[in-house]
Design a protein around this nucleic acid. Structure first.
Length: 207
DNA sequence: TGCCAGGCCGGGT
DNA sequence: ACCCGGCATGGC
């Protein structure tokens, strides 16, 4: 897997993920981007920033209906507003700050995220890696599709099988995990779309 | 203009 | 234990 990483890095360079100004913003973005184009998410984030609402205290005080309206551009806005509230509740139950929440054993922290209604494996791992800076590899739809198309894993492979494929062979390093996932998304957007099964010009051709 | 995007949940079989 | 519909906006 490390050879693929170098191919992608040589081709695309550093991706500067996550596109967020603070761990809190990254966390909110991780939830809002569920099955959603980032350009829509950035509109929602902008709406919150514009009103000075992109903080734990401000969002906690905000009625869920108002929150829903502000994040409308990100799609699934009613569900996502409720899910954000669930996430805020988790922070509240764990000291009321991200620092106190993140100051836990990674595995334990991951379980707490997964216990939140609206947070699944990818969102949990995205928060762990990109907000909490824990060495956790993030798997997403692009990761799965890219590996399947290059014959590296079966269509039916589970999240954890795919994750293990990376963590078993890569150095356990936050910056590599960070860059690798971002590079896979970059590759996916350009060469591995669902609508284009041919992947013409893919830098991984031959794999 | 229909398909797709950095998922996840809940109900039915 | 799977399978599937629902959730929703904006870009191409």
């Amino acid at each position: 897997m490390l050879d693929i990483y170098y191919i992608l890095f040589d081709r695309f360079g550093p991706q500067h993920w996550w596109p967020g100004d603070s761990p809190f913003e990254v966390m909110v973005g991780a939830l809002l981007t569920q099955n959603t184009n980032w350009s829509n998410v950035s509109r929602a984030i902008f709406n919150l920033k514009k009103e000075n609402l992109l903080s734990f205290d401000a969002l906690e005080a905000l009625p869920v209906e108002v929150l829903a309206e502000l994040i409308r551009p990100s799609g699934y806005y009613n569900m996502k507003a409720a899910r954000l509230k669930n996430l805020l509740a988790l922070i509240r139950e764990n000291g009321g700050t991200l620092e106190s929440l993140f100051n836990k054993d990674t595995a334990e922290l991951r379980e707490r995220f997964l216990a939140v209604n609206g947070i699944g494996p990818e969102t949990a791992d995205s928060i762990l890696l990109y907000a909490a800076e824990k060495p956790v590899f993030v798997v997403d739809a692009y990761t799965h599709r890219i590996l399947v198309r290059h014959g590296l894993i079966s269509e039916e492979a589970t999240y954890y099988e795919i994750q293990d494929l990376f963590t078993d062979t890569l150095p356990k390093d936050v910056s590599i995990y960070n860059e690798y996932h971002a590079l896979l998304v970059r590759l996916g957007k350009e060469f591995c779309k669902k609508s284009k099964p041919r992947c013409e010009g893919c830098p991984l051709e031959g794999y």
